[in-house]
């Protein structure tokens, strides 16, 4: 039967119009709270500690926040599909080492741009490979992701250290480190532009494409997604590959900034990325999470770190505070889902 036939038979009874939503609806509760907290924190900091407003401090802050946002964006996709990626730190170590080694070992006389291209390409390949292994294990072994990623992170860090014997890898072209990694373009650090571009890309994916919808669907209710005819496992794996790729991108930016490939990079970033995602309202129950809130949460966390540095709070105590924040936000997440 054709659609036309059907329509002629249709008696329009009463059509219910869509609920009218204005722009405010699109800003969730989380967005509002985060913006308020960020502005408040900035205000207090600028009053209490004038060094906060120094151009150098702001540039560093923005660079670190951008890198954190990039990793957390990948973590967000994994949490949306009800997983956790504990291997992002390890992946960063691996990518850093691989990128630096490739750049340091290209044949003499290769053009700088090609050298960078090879290094960056190898880095992304390494990141995607880790993500793929994680994704395949989670999708087909059906084990909780944190066990799988704990295992792969041990393997990947071991590999990164084995390849370098734990010694930093030097010899990257200046065009990569000082002219890109530490560069300030138009008053803003290079990493910021890349982070903003990535955020825009993910916003488009989440809001305007089927891939974004499918990832939400797989996380919201896996069985329903299968019943609806989606190749659910494909989107599950995709989330982990995205996380591997974002970890790679963050690592490349960080490696460029430091100027050497290091197997010890990314240690605390795994936990920070999870913290950012959770603070940014990505639900631990799956199926919920927006890139814009994750970016705001990254900025918030970096501001907090910056504040503690400026106020000379021991860096180890930051771990304690972060741990508490994550548990409290998780408790709030539980409360929200229960009250529905």
């Amino acid at each position: 039967m054709t659609r036309e036939q059907r329509q002629t038979m249709t008696r329009i009874t009463h059509e219910t119009p869509p609920v009218r939503l204005d722009w405010r609806h699109h800003l969730t509760e989380t967005t509002g709270i985060l913006i308020a907290v960020i502005l408040g924190l900035m205000l207090i900091l600028s009053l209490v500690e004038p060094r906060f407003l120094a151009a150098q401090n702001l540039a560093n802050l923005l660079r670190s926040a951008s890198i954190l946002a990039i990793i957390s964006a990948g973590q967000m996709f994994v949490i949306i599909v009800r997983g956790f990626d504990l291997s992002v730190g390890a992946t960063m170590a691996m990518v850093s080492v691989v990128t630096a080694m490739v750049m340091a070992n290209v044949p003499e006389g290769t053009a700088t741009s090609l050298t960078i291209l090879y290094g960056v390409g190898a880095g992304f390949a390494a990141g995607a490979a880790v993500g793929l292994v994680n994704g395949l294990c989670v999708a087909y072994l059906k084990v909780h992701s944190f066990m799988v990623t704990l295992g792969t992170s041990s393997i990947v860090v071991g590999l990164a250290l084995y390849l370098t014997n734990g010694i930093p890898v030097y010899g990257m072209p200046r065009g990569f480190s000082s002219e890109f990694g530490r560069a300030i373009w138009g008053g803003l650090p290079s990493a910021f532009y890349i982070g903003a571009g990535l955020a825009l890309l993910f916003w488009v994916i989440q809001n305007l494409t089927t891939v974004g919808k499918y990832i939400y669907a797989v996380g919201g209710n896996f069985k329903s997604a299968v019943f609806s005819g989606l190749s659910a496992n494909r989107y599950l794996v995709m989330a982990y590959v995205i996380s591997g790729l974002t970890a790679a991108l963050a690592s490349i930016l960080l490696t460029a900034q430091i100027g050497s490939g290091q197997g010890s990079i990314g240690g605390v970033l795994t936990f920070q990325s999870i913290a950012v995602a959770i603070i940014g309202g990505v639900s631990l129950q799956g199926g919920v999470g927006k890139i814009e809130n994750v970016c705001l949460a990254a900025l918030f966390l970096q501001l907090l770190t910056n504040a503690m540095e400026l106020l000379r709070i021991q860096s180890q105590l930051q771990a304690v505070i972060l741990g508490l924040i994550v548990i409290l936000v998780a408790a709030n997440d539980i409360r929200k889902t229960r009250s529905v």
Binding site: F271, Q316, L317, Q318, V320, I321, G323, V326
Partner: peptide
Amino acid sequence: LGAMNICYGL
């Protein structure tokens, strides 16, 4: 995971 960080920090 949170407690792990807290213990580390402490």
